[in-house]
Every structure is written in C-alpha cells, then in structure tokens.
Design a protein around this nucleic acid. Structure first.
Lengths: 198, 198
DNA sequence: GTCTATACTGAGATAGAC
DNA sequence: GTCTATCTCAGTATAGAC
C-alpha cells in the first residue's frame, strides 16, 4: 500500500510538470491524490515546502551524476578542457529529460522564474559552485568578473533552453530532443567562455 | 489633475518593479494610488491587462530605438557584423536601465518567467523577429536549426542578465552597471554565435 | 502519529446603484 | 466613471477523531 506522503509527492510532481507551480492548487493535488487537504500541511508544512521535496527527488540524482562526472574530468591531473566541464554539467540533465521531459522543463522554469529563490538556492547552487571551480581551472586567464558573468549568462541560457517546448519555439524536426539541444548549447557556450575577456 | 487611469499605471509600474507581478495585489495598487478597486477592472479589464499596458509604456520606446539602430546597421549595403547587430539589440535596454534599473529587471523577469506568455509574445517577439533577420544576414552560413537555437540561448542569457541585482549575484564593484553587463554579454554572445555550427 | 472537517484571511473578479 | 457589496477560490491554520 502506497502511503499518503508518496501519493502527494507523485501527484504534485505530475501536476507541477504539466501546469506549473502557481497554476496547480493544493486542492487539485489532494483531489487527484485522494487525500485530505490538511495532509499536505501535516507532511510538508506548506505548498512551497512540498515543491522543495518534489524538486529534491528529481534534482538530487542529477546533481550527484554531475559531481561524479566533474570529478572524473578534473582529477586526471591535467588542465581540463572547457568542453569537458560543460559536458559534465549539462549531460546529466539531458539524461534525466529522456525519462521525464516534462519535469525537466518544469525545473528550468523554477530556475528561470527566480521566484522560490530558497528552492533554487538549495538545489542548484551547491552543484553549480563545484562546477564553477572546475571551469575556473579550464579558464585560468579570464578576469574574475568576466568569468562570473559568463557563468551567469550560461545559467540563463541553460534554464531558458530547458523550459521551452519545441512547438513553442518553432524548432521542429529531429533536432527537438534534449540530447540535441545540449549539443548545440555546448558549442555555443564553449565559444562564449573561450572568447577574449575584458 | 492626473486621471485615475494614469495614477493606476504609475503606481502599478512602481510596485511591479519593486515586488514583482504576483507579489503585488490589486488592493495594494488601488490603496497607494488612492482609487477604487473596481477602477482597475473598469480601465483595464484584469490584472494581466494592466501589466500589459505597463509593459507597453516602457518596452515601446526601447523597441523603437532597437529597430532604428538595426536599420542603420543593416542598410549600409555591406554584410553586417554580428557585433553590430547585437549592439543594436542590446544597447537600448542598457540606456533604459540607466533611467529605471528596477523596471528593466522586472521586464527581464517577465520574459524569463514565461508566465504571461501573451504579454511576452506581444511586446518582445515583433522586435526580436526583425533582429533575427538582421543577424541572419551576418551569419549566412550557419545551419538554420543551429541559428534558431542560438537565438534562443541568447534570449535566455539576456533575460537572466537583466533580472539579476548585482548583490544577489555576488558580482560587486564597478562592474555592476547595466552598460558593463551588456558589454560583457555582447562579447560572450558574439563568440557563441560565430562558433562552428553543427 | 495520522488524518479529517471546518474555518480564516486575502486574492481577483463582477453586478448593479449612483 | 465611480463605488459598494459580494462571489469564488486560493493557501493556511486548528481542533479533534482514530
């Protein structure tokens, strides 16, 4: 028998991915999950904390995979290549998208919205910080401010790229998949990061 | 004597910029504007349409300036440079930011959020379409899908760059201004667009 | 410890009097 | 054009049953 908490998490994940966070009411979640309204507050405390746990379940494995790949890219002793580091950071997301594309889009939106800053801070920043250090090794000569801004540009492009459904982008055909998007994004970002600074 | 509609527009602009769209209630707007709640519905129809008019007032001049610069860059007969086209698109925003930095941040958020798609579509897409054509002339050899995705990456980086307050980015010092941001973004995007395709 | 029923506050929207 | 009153629905909080 599946517990109340699990039912809420599963239903919330599905509805958030389909409709977005704001557009999904707690009453819709509990109705489709077949539980009582107060159960959300009992198990999670608030709607925002429910989102927090939903994101954690999905983002946790992605971030773990990112860190594992990053370790491998950095630890071989040599100066890592920009493309290698980007690959370590971007590819796990494409893998996750092949399981649940809708939810990856949702996570892109969570990041891009900048609302729920606590959720973003908690689930995205730690892995990003490690990644930033790795990328710094690959770009030792870039001035610090320029480097930090480029990280910021990258995150904007990444979040926006995750969000979009191909239909809405008028980008159709075989190139619509996440693997393909990540390939294109990597080419774009690699060149941007390696541009002359200041 | 300033009319009710103007008072609502001015107050809404200020509060949206300060607090965001969702966090600003219609009751707060009418309270600070000194008008009645129903006046918003009478003059605008809904909260979303009020946002629409607030955005139009600010984005209209920026887009006009963009188009004027784009014409100048494209119409001199020669193949335009990527950097020129980007300059025409990005610089007017920095100029607008020097007047009202808070509201430019808010517009970045409106775009990034992807909520209010109708507002985004209406006020950002037309100028973007013209700009895309101009950039296409500067990059005639890039495969179409690659080109369109790079436009998408650019818009993500741009929106995210506009949103952020320097404090929250840990990017302090002289480099925090919008002119400087745009310079850095232009370097980054120029290199990205000119990278080898596919 | 878990869950249900119900009430509270504040949001956007609307009808109709003036 | 403007304002009052009211409607519906959101997230939240609590008392109490099992």
């Amino acid at each position: 028998m599946i517990g109340t908490k699990q039912k809420i998490l599963d239903t919330a994940e599905r509805l958030f991915a389909l409709q977005g966070y704001a557009a999904t009411s707690m009453r819709q979640i509990i109705s489709e999950a077949g539980v009582n309204l107060a159960a959300i507050h009992y198990h999670f405390g608030s709607k925002e904390e429910l989102l927090d746990e939903v994101v954690l379940r999905k983002a946790g494995p992605v971030n773990a995979e990112r860190l594992a790949r990053l370790e491998a890219a950095v630890a071989d002793g040599q100066t890592p290549q920009v493309g290698e580091i980007l690959e370590a950071f971007l590819r796990p997301m494409a893998a996750s998208a092949s399981q649940n594309e809708q939810f990856v889009r949702f996570m892109g939106r969570v990041y891009a919205e900048g609302l729920l800053p606590h959720v973003v801070e908690k689930h995205f920043q730690p892995a990003l910080a490690r990644f930033r250090d790795g990328l710094r090794q690959a770009l030792p000569e870039l001035p610090e401010q320029e480097f930090l801004w480029r990280i910021h540009f990258m995150m904007g492009a990444l979040a926006h790229t995750m969000c979009g459904a191909p239909e809405s982008l008028q980008l159709l055909g075989v190139s619509a998949g996440f693997q393909d998007r990540i390939d294109r994004l990597k080419r774009f970002l690699s060149a941007g990061f390696r541009a002359e600074g200041e």
